[in-house]
Design a protein around this nucleic acid. Structure first.
Lengths: 184, 184
DNA sequence: TTAATCATGTAACACGTTACATGATTGC
DNA sequence: GCAATCATGTAACGTGTTACATGATTAA
């Protein structure tokens, strides 16, 4: 999975590991959190598989870097992945916890959902701002068609955050109702 | 993560591996897809850690089974997990693919989102029906408070499916717009 | 007789996380 | 002098997936 993400980025431009990590951090971070160690490991694996090739570049005033570019085989692999059906493995840690919340008290659970709501409300605001500032990656790409899909991922993030906030509201109102019913 | 799910289930009732798998399949499947091999592995690990203990039960007409029950240490571990902050590792395969869809044609991408919309529409209907039939797990639990949280997970599933369908609509209308713009 | 259900697992691999490890240059 | 930026990785562990492997009983 990460493998294909890296191939996708190298298909846009040659990059070294550090730049790939930066790109993940500023453009893909809302849907993929890439770890340093994993990126370097995948780069090695991808090079061994012949999907990318790296060249060491000397720099002055900075450490040497290994610049990777995608190969023809890599491009084929990328397109194959894009054509495959996506296999969505549903694993939602939030719901795993929610499912067993019956072990905790009403008040603890109200606090749980309030905290959650708060954090997603912040995320939501972040997405709305990103949308308005018509920003970074969309501009970097300089290709209206490609940047449209970047926009789609932002839109998903916005909708998802909103959905979670609304879900929290629903949970909270049911919890409050239960609390009131107990009191009377 | 799965580890705590198993602890949670064993906290409700003693079960063997097969029953745990069945429970995942009919009650937790919409947010957690547990593999056989992993469940058996976790059960062994959990027993070695002292969080659960298993006893072999002979049955007639059926294979022997190993019935597990949670220990006091296991219950402590479960409650600790419930109190911890949840660490949500955002990794959304759907968006990873979406991000790089610029490599494919307009028509292919329209087909992609239509297929996706279709599958989430089906899921959505499934959730709505599950909601109305006031069903399985909620009844099994026989505990209004606990089954409320099960209901929360269903509600999340319903909202999420709906959100994805709406997102697909947005993507599709933008793609269609681009298509029309090209034609003229 | 054949498929489904009940029941257990192992082996190998793939993918993700956390901690450790190094070191030069630049700006405050 | 200290933190940030640029740049590379390894080691160990944890978690998830795929394929393989076995075998009895029951219902169509």
């Amino acid at each position: 999975m990460l493998k294909h993400g890296i191939l996708g980025l190298l298909n846009y431009a040659d990059m070294n590991g550090y730049e790939i990590l930066e790109t993940f951090r500023h453009s893909l971070n809302h849907f993929w959190n890439a770890q340093k160690s994993q990126v370097y490991r995948e780069l090695t694996a991808l090079e061994n598989a012949g999907y990318i090739q790296g060249t060491w570049i000397e720099q002055d005033g900075k450490p040497d870097k290994k610049l990777y570019s995608i190969t023809d085989d890599g491009r084929v692999e990328l397109l194959e992945w894009l054509s495959e059906d996506l296999k969505e493995s549903t694993r939602i840690p939030l719901l795993m916890k929610t499912f067993f919340l019956g072990e905790k008290s009403l008040d603890e659970n109200i606090a749980f959902f309030e905290k959650l709501k708060n954090s997603y409300q912040k995320r939501y605001k972040g997405f709305v701002e990103a949308d308005q500032s018509q920003d970074r990656y969309g501009d970097e790409l300089q290709d209206a068609y490609k940047s449209m899909f970047w926009g789609f991922t932002i839109s998903y993030g916005r909708r998802r955050s909103k959905m979670v906030v609304e879900w929290c509201d629903e949970c909270l109102s049911q919890l409050e109702e239960t609390k009131n019913a107990k009191r009377s």
